[in-house]
Amino acid sequence: MSDFYAANLVLIQSTFIGILLALSVQVPMRAGVFSFAGAGSYGIGAYVSAILVLKTGMPSLLAILISGIVAMVVGLLLGLLVAHLGGLYLAMATVSFDLIVSVLAINGGDLTGGVTGLFGVLSDVTIFHLIGLALLGIVGVALTERGRVGRRVDAVRDDPELAQSVGISVRRYRLAAFVVSGLLGSVAGSLNSLVRSTISPSDIGFSLIVLALTMIIVGGAQSWKGAVLGAVIFTWLPPLLAGFGQLQHVVYGVIVATAAIFVPGGLYGIYSEARYRRTRAKRKPPQGEAPAHEQALAISVPNGDAGRSA
């Protein structure tokens, strides 16, 4: 076990970072906000933490906290800026945001270390910090899928007009999605810099957006479970595919394309659909409806009230 741990330490660390990154895209997607700003927030977290630790020697957790706050504020501003956009336009605007963060990193001079980035970010982040923060992220996101908040997020995604008519401020929920995504992405980026002790623009570019999106498409966007599944798969799959040599990119591409085309809900979608079918099959007459309806009337109107109005 400890042999496995030692041999795969980098992948194990990446798994927890990947989970937070995937959640940062899953949270807005679930609210119907097609934002990939999580990748940009990852860049903000990665650089702000690295700079804070390098220049001030600040404790890691404090640096993570401060960069998280910075990314939440940026997320809020971005959310306000693109509030009127939807669908593809919103997606493009947030991709642009991610690329702007990259450009800033490349052109940041001494502060960001330009193309070569920053090195020697020494920190005391351990695997326990990674596990703890990833768990915190999972629990927080899982909560937003429960009870009243969970229902309201569903309504904001599925039918914003209906949501408003039952008192939900769609605008506020959408903004919250940007802020939460900012925090999650930032913590993922911070942890990456602090664990690897280095950060460069190549870590936060377009490939990061693709990675995050891949995790969500294959894992499923409706639940944190899909994000976790996707993060685990796409952290561990590439090294496994190394055996395919030249072909590995093709195999990778085929997996992603297959999932996108044939499994729109991702792996979690398959699971939840199967579970729903099972409970539906157990119910008495599902599609027939007429007998089910008669039954319902018999239950609620024992004294033949239905007959009177017929």
């Binding site: 229902r151 008519s165 409706q222």
Partner: peptide, 23 residues
Amino acid sequence: HASQIAAKRIARTFQTVRLLPDV
């Protein structure tokens, strides 16, 4: 605002049924 009418206790139904499909 549209999202405040529920707090004023005005409720409505829609001409085309609008229910959340997955709950």
